[in-house]
Every structure is written in structure tokens, then in C-alpha cells.
């Protein structure tokens, strides 16, 4: 659906703009983030080791090769999901917040334990959805959980700030009626739109190469993620890539890469 791709790109984008950022993989048992960030061979200790006190944070944090101010805290591939405890997660987040400006938590799919842990301490949430009915319905559900089961909800604090990110958007298929339009999704979810990432070969290529797609300045998806990061930091930017591109224009400018 694009959660891990998005976490990697948003975290990279924040770091590229000079903010010290760490991205945590909450998908215990599957471990995808380190593949997308191309650091799986450098994983020695992981998130669960830190929670269990078997390693220090500094031992587990991996420095990103491409981006200076970016660190990755990988998930464990072997452990049981229940190893993530609320107290343990809180301890790690508190320690990280001492030295990092942004902590990006990459949530696993669904509404199980890992996802609940990832969202519990959130101040802001980016809900990633695809333009199809079932995905939008799931996002609606997770938004409900965000506003009832997060720490901010339980403590009666200001609610978690919600952002909507629509990925794999294909304007041609929207016109054919095969996909929901941006307007449809916005109307159903009633959450401010952070960005629309077009369906793009660049996303797949980037994942396979282990370089977050936001590095790809020439691709539409890369630019769309850069826009999303700018909006997250408070900039006003117009949404792009919402309409069918005129044939010839992009290929002329970008040599067919987009």
C-alpha cells in the first residue's frame, strides 16, 4: 500500500532539509524498512534488543549512507510481536527525542498490536491510502482508532494531527472510473490532504535499488514526496500530478523517465 515507502521517503525528505530524523520500523517479524533503505546488511541490533536492554540505542541505530542527518532503527525479523511493550516503546521514544527533531514510526498494516504501538505515542499521523474503496475504508477505521486509542486521546490532550497521503494515484484510471478520485477520498475521510503520489515505475525501481524514491528528483513520485515533506513542514504548495499528463510534454522535458 505504500506505508514503508512513504516512511522512508518522508524521513529522508525531513533529513535532507536539515532536520535530524530517525525512522523506526514497527513491523516486527517482517522487516521491510531496512531493505528499502538498503541497510539490511548493516543490521546488528534492533528495536526489540533495545527495548529488552540487550543493546544501547547507539548500538542499534544505523546511519543512512545517502543522507547525513538520517538514522534508522530496524525491526527484529525473528521476534514475537508482543516484544513491543508500551513501556519499552515509550522509553526508546523518550531517549530518541533527546537527540532527534523528528521520529518517524513506520506502522505495520492492519490494526493489530504493532500498529497500535506505532500510533500510541504519535503527535502527528500520516495516513497512507490507495484510491480504492477497501483501502479508504481501512484508513477510516485507523483514523477512528487514532482518535480513541492513542495516548493523546486517552489523556484528553489535543488530538493527534491527521494528514492524508494518497499513493498509487493514476489519473487515467480515475477518468475510466477504475479508481476513486482525490475529491472522493477527501470527501469520505475528511482529513487534510498532505500529498498525492502518482503511480510510478520510479517507486518500484527505487524500492528495488534500496534508495528512497524522494532522492529521484526527476521522477514525478520523487517530486510529489518532496512536496509532501514541504507541506508537512508548513509550506504551502499546490498539488501536482492530479490530472492526466499531456502526452509528449514529460517525455520531452525528462527524456521519458517519468
Amino acid at each position: 500500500m505504500g506505508k514503508t515507502t512513504t516512511s522512508a521517503s518522508i524521513a529522508t525528505g525531513l533529513a535532507k532539509r536539515g532536520h535530524k530524523t530517525v525512522v523506526i520500523d514497527f513491523d516486527v517479524g517482517l522487516r521491510n524498512l531496512d531493505l528499502i533503505m538498503n541497510c539490511e546488511r548493516r543490521v546488528v541490533y534492533d528495536f526489540v534488543n533495545v527495548i529488552n536492554g540487550e543493546a544501547t540505542l547507539n548500538q542499534a541505530l544505523i546511519k543512512d549512507k545517502h543522507t547525513d542527518k538520517l538514522h534508522i532503527l530496524p525491526a527484529s525479523q525473528t521476534r514475537d510481536k508482543e516484544a513491543l511493550t508500551r513501556e519499552g516503546v515509550e522509553k526508546v521514544l523518550n531517549e530518541l527525542s533527546e537527540s532527534f527533531e523528528y521520529i518517524v514510526c513506520d506502522s505495520p498494516a492492519g490494526i493489530e498490536h504493532g500498529a497500535l504501538m506505532a500510533l500510541y505515542y504519535a503527535d502527528e499521523a500520516i495516513v497512507v491510502t490507495n484510491p480504492e474503496v477497501s483501502s479508504v475504508r481501512d484508513s477510516d477505521r485507523i483514523l477512528g482508532i487514532l482518535q480513541s486509542k492513542s495516548r493523546r486521546a486517552e489523556m484528553g490532550m489535543d488530538p493527534v494531527r491527521e494528514h492524508l497521503l494518497l499513493t498509487r494515484y493514476n489519473p487515467e484510471r480515475v477518468i475510466k472510473g477504475e479508481m476513486l478520485s482525490v475529491q472522493d477520498v477527501e470527501e469520505i475521510l475528511a482529513v487534510p490532504l498532505l500529498g498525492v503520489i502518482p503511480e510510478s515505475q520510479a517507486v518500484l525501481t527505487a524500492s528495488n535499488q534500496g534508495i528512497p524514491v524522494i532522492h529521484d528528483d526527476l521522477s514525478d513520485a520523487g517530486q510529489a514526496y518532496q512536496d509532501a515533506v514541504a507541506r508537512l513542514l508548513g509550506e504551502e504548495r499546490e498539488h501536482r500530478f492530479l490530472d492526466v499528463q499531456k502526452k509528449g510534454f514529460f517525455s520531452r522535458v525528462f527524456g521519458g523517465k517519468a
Partner: peptide, 8 residues
């Protein structure tokens, strides 16, 4: 005043 989401 907040949206009532699926499952609530």
C-alpha cells in the same frame, strides 16, 4: 464534533 469512523 469529531467524525465517527468505521468500526466506532
Amino acid at each position: 464534533r469529531t467524525p465517527i469512523r468505521s468500526g466506532q
